[in-house]
């Protein structure tokens, strides 16, 4: 709470973001590069899936960050809605495009992985299906922002869309999993993080943190950008004072 109210001030946020954004960027670069290096050359292959398991290091963190981005977007929208804070709106808006991009990356890498483990690029597998729906949610959110001319209204409506979507996300995920177990009898499932040996877990974690910092860098720079733009536009001459006369 303290951190939030501290950063709610646009000037302090600007100061924080100016310092934090480059740090996030550098951290992201370092973590992703080491993650890829360890993932591709310094980790063992999977007993069942062979080298194709290495796609996981790109795929799983991308889906995670995609979901995290949606959660962050909904949370920022909630703050914006309750306290009518424009900075939170900017924050929510800045989450959308990177979030959608990570989700799309998750789908793309997932389909490549599918080709090696299922033999097809697409399966109506539980995780793939709910990731696809997540992408639809992101697109809807961005479309609302893009199509509403009045910015204040766009922010509030898009915020509502994000909040309603986030409440539904667990229901969607649950129903899709239920549906999936009903119809899918046998397929090689993608490995999940908890069951992984440490040698596979390390690159996965490196990539997850790397992606997170990359996401943080994208969001902070986007918010910085829009704050300074809004600042320029604000500096217009004020209205002249109205006059009152009696008839």
């Amino acid at each position: 709470m303290g951190v939030i109210s501290f950063l709610a001030n646009p000037l302090r946020f600007k100061k924080f973001a100016r310092v934090a954004a480059p740090i996030f960027g550098v951290l992201a670069l370092v973590l992703i590069v080491t993650g890829i290096w360890i993932g591709l050359w310094r980790s063992p292959e999977d007993q069942l899936q062979g080298h194709s398991v290495r796609i996981m290091y790109v795929h799983v963190p991308a889906v995670w960050i995609g979901m995290m981005a949606y959660a962050a977007m909904a949370l920022a929208s909630l703050f914006a809605y309750i306290w009518r804070h424009p900075l939170s709106d900017e924050l929510a808006r800045a989450c959308a495009l990177p979030g959608a991009a990570f989700t799309a990356l998750g789908l793309l890498s997932g389909s490549l992985w599918g080709k090696t483990s299922w033999g097809t690029f697409w399966q109506w597998d539980g995780r793939m299906t709910s990731t696809l729906i997540l992408l639809f949610l992101f697109i809807g959110y961005m479309a609302v922002w893009a199509g509403t001319p009045d910015k204040r209204r766009a922010a509030r409506i898009a915020g509502l869309v994000a909040m309603v979507g986030s409440i539904n996300l667990p229901i969607i995920k649950f129903s899709v999993d239920w549906w999936n177990t009903l119809h899918q009898t046998s397929s090689v499932s993608m490995p999940d993080a908890p069951g992984l040996p440490p040698s596979n877990l390390l690159p996965l974690m490196l990539m997850t943190f790397g992606y997170s910092f990359f996401f943080g860098w994208l969001v902070l720079s986007q918010v910085l950008n829009s704050i300074s733009k809004a600042g320029e536009r604000r500096q217009r001459p004020a209205a002249a004072s109205p006059t009152m006369e009696t008839l």
Binding site: R236, P237, A240, S241, P242, M244, E245, T246, L247
Partner: peptide, 18 residues
Amino acid sequence: PEKIGEHTRVLTLNGAAD
């Protein structure tokens, strides 16, 4: 504006200088 009732006032809004 026209006078309506006893107490009629006119508020004129002026725009920004530019």
